[in-house]
């Protein structure tokens, strides 16, 4: 398997506080990875850097077979390169229907003129139906996204990510605020998604991480503290000290 994303030696500080400190991280095509770590470890900031929201002070972020640097690209360009992101707080377009949310996310030309002239074809509607079915929102397609429950919004956001057909999916705390059944559904979705693309999941819930059954990276104070199987990292004494022990 080839490396899809390589982050090396990245640091970023906010007003002198080093949120990310010489972080290096790699992920391969079609790999599922969990990222855990205490509050403030820099997990969200790591995603901000990869998606272009935050510019690092130093380091490299290299993407794809052609090894292009993501650091010069805008957020929208990075998204079009094939990196999709789910935010920690569910963010869907509440004033629009579930269908409109999906249609906006579908992988299509993003230019102003093509968007103006776009009219969904039968195939597009079928794809939306299939996605909605996958995330369990088929019955809600014509409801306003704002009327959905918290868990449903999270799924909608995951569904929109899948609609973008990204090669790398960054998912920040997808299970927060979900009931146990909803969590199970969510973990299945992510495992399924990772069969065809790389997926990075940030999550605090160990039960959830165990179900993902994948390699785990532990972040602490902006750097990688440990990496390996869940059992491997949870038996690491440093990890127990800073994260699990509390």
């Amino acid at each position: 398997m080839s490396t899809l994303l390589e982050v090396s030696g990245v640091s970023v500080s906010f007003d002198g506080f080093k949120a990310i400190n010489n972080l290096s991280f790699q992920i391969a095509d079609a790999e599922l990875r969990a990222v855990i770590g205490p509050n403030g470890a820099g997990k969200t900031t790591f995603m901000d850097i990869v998606t272009g929201k935050t510019r690092p002070d130093e380091g490299r972020v290299i993407w794809g077979e052609k090894s292009v640097s993501l650091l010069r690209m805008s957020e929208a360009q990075i998204a079009r390169e094939g990196i999709g992101r789910k935010f920690q707080k569910p963010t869907v377009f509440e004033g629009q229907t579930v269908r409109e949310n999906f249609l906006m996310a579908l992988k299509k030309d993003r230019g102003v003129l093509s968007v103006l002239l776009f009219r969904p074809s039968k195939a597009d509607h079928e794809q939306v139906d299939a996605l909605a079915e996958e995330v369990g929102l088929l019955a809600e397609l014509d409801r306003l996204a704002g009327e959905l429950s918290h868990g449903q919004k999270q799924w909608l956001e995951i569904g929109m990510l899948l609609a973008q057909e990204p090669r790398l999916l960054l998912v920040d705390e997808p299970a927060a605020g979900m009931t146990p059944e909803e969590r199970e559904h969510t973990s299945k979705l992510l495992v399924q998604a990772a069969k065809t693309r790389a997926v990075v999941v940030v999550e605090h819930d160990m039960e959830f991480v165990r179900r993902l059954n994948c390699k785990v990276t532990v972040l602490h104070e902006g750097g990688v503290l440990a990496e390996g199987s869940l059992d491997h990292v949870t038996s690491n004494s440093a990890v127990i000290d800073v994260y699990l022990g509390r």
Binding site: A76, R85, G95, Q96, R110, V112, Q164
Partner: peptide, 28 residues
């Protein structure tokens, strides 16, 4: 009435999210 309307309302309500969907908000 179409997708451009969706994107414009999206920009109004949450422009960051629109950006991460791959639309160049500035151009719109």
């Amino acid at each position: 009435s179409g997708k451009l309307g969706s994107v414009l309302r999206g920009i109004r309500d949450n422009e960051t999210r629109v950006r991460f969907l791959g639309y160049s908000v500035e151009g719109f």
